[in-house]
Amino acid sequence: MTNLPTPSERFIQGILPENPVYRQLLGLCPTLAVTSGLKPALTMAVAVAAVLMSANIIISLIRNLLKPHLRIVVFTLTIATFVTVVDRLLAAYLYQMSKTLGPYIPLIIVNCIIICRCEVCASRQPVAAAAADAAGQAFGFGLALVSIAAIREVLGTGMLAGFQVMPSAWPQWVIMVLPPGAFLTFGLLLALVNWIDSARSKKGELEG
């Protein structure tokens, strides 16, 4: 148990250096499925953040009771409980949004980001680190979702979060709000992130 990252390191890492979507390529199902508009993407990001935070804290609190061969069962049980709570809350207080997101809220249960954070961080580190990790990863996930959703919604419908932002003459690129648009946008953004990264590391090598 030596040299595990500190809480602040965990938080920073989650946002860009270990961004769950762009660096770890986890949680791609909701990333591709609910990013046709900014509003559903934001709701999904908040829902995942709530589940991730709750699960990380609970798992961190009981980390010394976990038996290695049964840990995944405990993770799944905990995650499923919080996802169900979030699903019910959405249906009660954000009914239209819960209808828009449909099955993707229950599917947070199998979102690898959360089970990965339970395994990598929460089952090994105290609550402060686990909470910081959850916050960082959730922020990173939200950032990724919002970046993809903003591009898709603007190009596909000319609107952003339901408001017209492009001139009305904009020929709506319907493909951007369809599934292929999700793959295109995600692929191009991923390439961009990798390009920036390699450019920066090259510059670092030259200077250092």
């Binding site: 049964l70 049980l77 169900t84 019910r88 009660a92």
Partner: peptide
Amino acid sequence: WLILVLALIFGAALAAVQVNLSQTI
């Protein structure tokens, strides 16, 4: 035992959520 205890606690919590929210939904 941990799984059983957690399942009981979580089950009770979910039941409480359902009781409180089902009417609203």
